[in-house]
Simulated scan of single mutants.
Amino acid sequence: MTSQIVLLPGLLCDDAVWADQRGALGACFVADYGTRDSLGAMADYVLESAEGDRLLVAGHSMGGRVALEVFRRAPERVAGLALLDTGYTARAAGEAGENECAQRLRLLEIARTKGMRAMGKEWAPGMVNADRHDSEVYEAVLDMIERSTPDQFAAQIRALLDRPDATALLRDIECPTMIVCGRDDQWSPLARHEEMHARIRGSKLRVIERSGHMCTMERPDDVTEVLVEWARWATGSGSAR
């Protein structure tokens, strides 16, 4: 049986979000969601496109939710999961959920009227640590956002607003699972990852210090070390500490 590492980017991210990890992990399949507008459709595309019989699936942010949907559909194909700076619950009911919808649609309106980079400047400051707002990393995040289109943004917003709840799914995960979070992530806080760690039997939790939401770009060497450890664990060539 052949195995393949699958890397799933988050909202408005592309292969640049994994650039520093790909060299260490070897040949990987990096997803491009196009204008697919549901997490399920994204997961179906991954399963159709990835070539390995057994998949080591790593997802960052929205990509972590896609990874869970891949597992929901084909648990027998998933040899390992890595969930980075992500979540697992559905959109909240009531006022909280309406507020989330309104905030996302406000950003979409900026993207349509002023352009993707202008929207990124509104959105991205909370995605990296404040001390990196004048850094090359921050500019790389803005560049990545600018490479997407408002139509892609709209599709991914629909996918996130309609996201399924994966709470019950977590207890079914038995493959080697690494949960990773930036210590200072404001979008997907550490407490949420501690909950996932508690719900997934045998999972490992790794906290990336001095990092916000974009841990793969903010602290690339630290994240690469964790993912190499995970890949060895999932393939039986080593064990997680």
Rank of each mutant, 00 (worst) to 15 (best):
L205Y: 07
C175S: 11
E225F: 01
R206G: 05
L227Q: 08
M196E: 10
T167N: 10
C215Y: 00
A191Y: 03
H193G: 09
D221Q: 13
V228R: 05
C181A: 15
T235F: 01
V228H: 02
E194D: 05
R192E: 09
P220Y: 04
T216L: 06
H213T: 13
Q156D: 09
R183Y: 02
E229C: 04
E194G: 13
M217N: 03
M214I: 13
V207D: 05
C175Q: 02
D165K: 05
L169T: 03
L170Y: 05
D221N: 04
V207K: 08
E195L: 10
T235Y: 00
L160N: 13
A234H: 04
G238S: 12
R192L: 14
S188G: 11
P164R: 09
S203Y: 02
T177G: 11
E218D: 02
S188N: 14
L205M: 11
A198G: 10
S203I: 07
L205D: 07
R183T: 03
R232N: 12
G238Y: 00
D151F: 01
E225D: 12
A159N: 04
A191P: 01
K204Y: 07
R163I: 03
D185R: 15
A155Y: 06
H193Q: 08
R241H: 12
R163W: 00
R171E: 14
D185T: 13
S203E: 03
L205A: 09
I200M: 07
R183N: 08
G212S: 15
D184K: 03
I173H: 07
M196K: 07
D185L: 15
R219G: 13
F153K: 06
S203F: 03
G236W: 01
R171G: 10
A231K: 14
A154K: 08
R210V: 09
I200D: 10
E174P: 00
R171Q: 14
R210L: 07
A168G: 12
E194H: 06
Q156I: 02
C175P: 00
D172I: 03
E194Y: 00
I179P: 01
R201T: 14
L190D: 11
L161P: 05
I208K: 00
G236I: 04
A166V: 02
M178V: 08
E209K: 08
L161R: 06
T235S: 13
A191M: 09
E229K: 00
C181S: 15
D172M: 07
A240C: 11
Q152L: 03
K204S: 14
T235V: 00
L227D: 06
L169F: 10
A231Q: 14
S211D: 05
Q156G: 11
H213L: 09
H193C: 09
A191N: 10
S203H: 05
R232M: 08
E225G: 13
S239Q: 07
E225A: 14
G238K: 06
Q186K: 15
D172S: 15
S211F: 07
V207L: 10
L170W: 01
T177F: 04
C181E: 07
A231N: 01
A234D: 00
T235I: 00
Q186I: 05
T235Q: 08
V223Q: 06
R201V: 11
R192M: 14
R201P: 12
D221K: 03
E209Y: 01
E225L: 01
I200K: 04
W230H: 05
H197D: 05
R219M: 13
L205K: 11
W230F: 09
E194L: 08
R163A: 08
